[in-house]
Write a protein that binds this DNA or RNA. Sequence first.
DNA 1: TGACACCTGGGT
DNA 2: ACCCAGGTGTCA
Length: 281
Amino acid sequence: MPELPEVEHIRRTLSAKIVGSWVLRTRVERDDVIRGEIGVRDRGRALLRDGRISDVRRHGKRLAILVQDGRVLEFGLGMTGQFLLESPGGVPAERNHRHVIWYLGDRCGGMKQRLVWRDPRRFGGLTPLGDPETLNKACWGVLGPDALEIDEETLFDRLKKTQRALKTALLDQRLLAGVGNIYADEALHAAGIAPERRSHEVSRCEVGGLLKHVKRILREAVELGGSTIRDHKDPLLQSGAYQGRHAVYGRPGEPCQRCANVIRSNVVGGRTTHWCEACQI
DNA sequence: TGACACCTGGGT
DNA sequence: ACCCAGGTGTCA
């Protein structure tokens, strides 16, 4: 489900709703979604019980919830990971695959809302960490710069070091964090560069143009709540709207908006890839 | 670098 | 019944 825009939209939604809340209680329905070795005794602590939520952060496609005493929960959403925010009396719309639930509220007051971690395919998961340093270094330090933050020179230098197809490199989270299959295809089309071009042969000028489109497309997608292809819903069950702006993703056989040539699709680096042979060179 | 694995669900 | 899916990790 989630690339950078979807995760950033989720981050903003969560941040507005849960920062300042206390974690009153936690409930685990499936413990194999929790990564790392956590003793059963400490599991509630590891899941932030009795903490006051101070921040919700994102790097690339990854998300973290922090509490004031320094404990951290780090999330990878995989393909179908999802947060749900629910009011105490409300009946859940999604009843299955609800793996972890946090009951949030005031310090000594009643429960105000539930935060639910749902993930049907379970490619995602959460990792408890002891402190923000570990989050930034050991955990997120292995990822490349965030796609909204990286500068042209850094991206050019990193692409220069690999001969892989440009699209494959863009999907490598250690090279650049946040771009996935949809936005890689969209950015390459906007920049007029073929996905199979060798990364080290792309000129500085082309990388500059590509990066401008990457950032523009990601920012626009964030503002529209991301893309909803099949099942992406934000914590309030809202769908995204950026799928309406896709120029190539999911449109094989349709005419290219720029040159009217037929959009084709093929597998590049193991992922279905959509592009226009006529205007992407 | 590619094939395959991890899972469930939706569409044809 | 079969193919596909917004991701990532491991294997030869």
